[in-house]
Design a protein around this nucleic acid. Sequence first.
DNA 1: TCAATCCGTATC
DNA 2: ATACGGATTGAC
Length: 675
Amino acid sequence: MVSTNDVPEQLALLRTRVRPTKVAPTGVAASLPVARVAVDVPLAHLDRPFDYLVPEAMDADARPGTRVTVRFAGRQVSGLVLERVGASEHEGSLGRLARAVSPEVVLRPDVARLVRQVADRCAGTFSDVVRLAVPPRHARVEGREPKPSVAGPLPPAQPRFAEPDGQRWVDALAEGRPVRAVWSAPATADVPRTVAASVLAVLRRGRGAVVCVPDAHDVARFDTAFTDVLGPGQHVVLTADLGPSARYAAFLALARGQVRAVVGTRAAAFAPVHDLGLVAIWDDGDDLHAEPRAPYPHVREVLLTRAADAGCAALLAAHARTCEAQHLVDSGWAVSIELDATARRTAWPRGQVGGSDDRALARDAAAQAARLPVDALQVVRAALEHGPVLVQVPRAGYRTALSCQRCHEPARCERCQGPLGQSSPDTAPACRWCGTVAEQWRCRECGGARLRAPVVGRGRTAEELGRAFPSVPVVGASGETRTTRVDGTPRLVVATPGAEPHADGGYAAALLMDTWLLLARPDLRTAEESVRRWLNASALVRPAGEGGRVVLVGDPADPAIQAVVRADPVGFARRELADRQVAHFPPAVRLASIEAPLDELLPLLDRPWPQPCELLGPVALPEQRGEDAGSRLVVRVPRHRGPALAAALRELQAGRSLRKEPTLRVRVDPQSLSF
DNA sequence: TCAATCCGTATC
DNA sequence: ATACGGATTGAC
């Protein structure tokens, strides 16, 4: 009904009596006088185009894809022209466009289609999704003379993939075939340059490419590699943190067809690239790819939708492999590019599990100081002879709750019963909810007065390792204080997942601490996410042939830990996907989470959901800072019923919006689902 | 009898 | 949302 060029609608249009829409007082455009406009209103029941007459004076500017303002329900709202048609199907009289804001085409028809498809899939509205696709206008940038292009001729294609399957894939790209691949990149791969080589193959055929990476740090790496491989001026960078003017300039360069390739974060997934030939995503398991604003689309799903619609090539590259990526391989939609077990042993550092002999801990003073298993400590000690060592710890302050030294009961705030934590060694323990400092704490269970930290943040680990290795410099890196590179001299680099600096020549070893803490998170993706973080850290270490080692401190029998020791992301993804099939979780099924106060959820149990369907809950969500966080209802249907579920959810939201009830927080196949 | 107010409905 | 219309209510 809303898609811009579907055939039944065209026929319906022919059937409608084409009445020369009541001749307006002053002239309307002679040809295609009706503009179908997507108006910027957030109401779910108004999520469809509205028709307006195009005044003659706006005929040239108000083309499909341009910004306009219109009078809607009595007020001025901004909108985007979806298409121009000869006549309206609307029974009543039409209003006229109030203003053609700019002749710039900011919403190409293919992107408009994509926005609609994404909104449909996520049970959201066009106006919510189009905000992600079209950045705010910056008139100064629009008026500015475009920078003269510095782009030279494209260099010849470069072989890049080490894997034979990978080279076959990029050769097929170079022939212009819409091939799709999931690549499990080994530690030895130069990922940015390999992706750049794929983009080059596509650009050489005169087509465009969209590449999405999780964060600004990755954007910088890929940007450098793209300039190296493609030459200057062949691509733009597009991220939200460029600032309004630079972001709009990059967006316009693509929209005007001056540049055909883009690398960026979430903001780039909808980029207006002409003649799209390739979409690519790096590390699709990173939760930064999940949009935090309604309707919470995931970059991977946006790009896959785009690839299907454009009939173009697609690449999902990552060290680890998500269940969703493995599902694409199993269903035959994409080919897998991976190394066999023998090749992996040389392409990744050698992995082992530390901590198997805890009794040795008591005898080694240094190990005791660092609270580290002896075998792990020995690997670190030996590796420090040859270069820097990466120590990965769970996020600083992450779940750092204190407990009673004697009985291990979690320590609670005397005032509000919140968990006690300690952000640095010199600050007093305080409540994580209300901030009350615990001056004279006593355990409520056993009366003990001493606190222990079962979880150790980055700060404390750095301090303890410094004591264990007094002669070696210790540097820290976390999200806020980000070091991007360290040189190849021996040092300890303590970092949280995702914030690990790259080391020149690679780390001699990585020590992955407190693995049980990551694995203890009560979430759907706990194991997958743990493997992803550990493999990403391992990828920064020299391969086994150059002496690279990875030590995980944890349970050797855990499949997630084994997957990292064997550097086997594909085997792990297969196993995890099989588990999800058994447990009925995405991507084996389609699932929606609905969050609201309990009394809003209860009536939903009686709704006519698409069958077959399973309702889970509602269950109360864990309270946040002592406040009630409402409840959650989960609706689960077979995968092929996904569209019906999304349609039912949109209808639900439309009805609520019509009755002026608040919209529910609905997420389709949410990135994270705690239980 | 008229205005103030409430509710329902459409928004092109 | 916001604007409008029709029904409803209450005061003169």
